[in-house]
Amino acid sequence: MIEAKNIHKFYGELEVLKGVDLSIKKGEVIAIVGPSGAGKTTLLQILGTLDQPSKSENSELQINSIDLLKLKDKTLSKFRNKHIGFIFQFHQLLPEFNAIENVCIPAFIANKSKKEAEKRAIELLQFLGLSHRLHHKPNELSGGEQQRVAVARALVNNPDVIFADEPSGNLDSTSAENLHKLFFELREKFNQTFVIVTHNQELADMADRKLEMKDGKIIN
Rank of each mutant, 00 (worst) to 15 (best):
N58W: 01
E60N: 10
L61H: 06
I63P: 01
N64D: 15
I66N: 13
D67E: 15
D67W: 01
L68Y: 03
L69G: 03
K70Y: 02
K72W: 02
D73P: 02
K74D: 13
L76D: 04
L76T: 07
S77F: 00
K78H: 05
F79Y: 15
R80I: 06
R80M: 01
N81V: 02
I84G: 04
F86W: 00
I87R: 06
I87L: 09
F88E: 00
F88H: 00
Q89M: 06
F90M: 08
Q92V: 01
L93E: 09
E96L: 12
N98D: 15
N98Q: 12
N98F: 07
A99E: 01
A99I: 02
I100S: 09
I100M: 03
I100L: 12
V103C: 11
C104R: 13
A107G: 13
A107L: 11
A107Y: 07
I109Q: 02
I109A: 11
A110W: 02
A110G: 03
K112Y: 01
S113W: 10
A117D: 12
E118Q: 14
E118S: 14
K119I: 06
A121R: 04
I122H: 02
I122Y: 03
L125Y: 04
Q126W: 00
F127N: 13
F127D: 09
L128R: 12
G129W: 14
S131G: 15
R133M: 07
R133Y: 04
H136T: 01
P138T: 03
P138Q: 00
P138N: 04
N139K: 11
N139S: 14
E140Y: 04
E140S: 14
S142M: 10
G143V: 10
Q147N: 13
R148K: 15
R148Y: 13
V149A: 13
V149C: 14
A150H: 11
A154G: 14
A154V: 11
L155W: 04
N158W: 00
D160Q: 15
D160Y: 14
V161K: 12
F163I: 10
D165F: 02
E166A: 01
P167W: 10
G169S: 09
N170S: 15
D172M: 09
D172S: 10
S173Y: 12
T174Y: 05
L179T: 05
L179N: 09
L179Y: 12
H180R: 06
K181E: 14
F184R: 03
L186M: 10
K189F: 08
